[in-house]
């Protein structure tokens, strides 16, 4: 099996995640789809590290994980704050900046 298959799988997962971001209306599910995209890129990084024979790709994947953890904390806090004031977690609800 060619290790390129991992990269193809990662591309597939990334596009499924992007479809989720565009399709779903619940802010938490949108957020989970962003996480799926980050995971897909991590898989690509790990595969490239293995193909190139160096550990740099794994280090980058590790940093992506750290940044994703910070992003999840802030994003979920924002969702909870919006939910508290608007009683809804729908991305259609937060449209005050439109007017």
């Amino acid at each position: 099996m060619n290790p390129m298959n991992y990269v193809l799988l990662s591309a597939l997962l990334f596009s499924i995640g992007s479809a989720g971001v565009l399709l779903r209306r619940n802010a938490i599910v949108v957020f989970m789809c962003v996480e799926l995209m980050l995971n897909a890129t991590n898989l690509a990084f790990v595969t490239f590290a293995r193909m190139q024979g160096t550990l740099d790709g794994q280090v980058i994947a590790f940093f992506v994980m750290v940044v994703a953890a910070a992003e999840v904390v802030i994003g979920l806090a924002i969702i909870v704050t919006i939910f508290r004031s608007r009683r809804s977690a729908s991305v259609d609800g937060a449209n005050l900046l439109k007017y």
Binding site: P3, M4, L8, A11, L12, S15, L22, R50, Q52
Partner: peptide, 20 residues
């Protein structure tokens, strides 16, 4: 999303690779 997946996958499919 489908177009994006197609672009990525067919773009990657042509690449010659190494596996060190």
């Amino acid at each position: 999303a489908l177009g994006f997946a197609g672009l990525l996958i067919f773009g990657i499919g042509d690449v010659t690779t190494v596996n060190r």
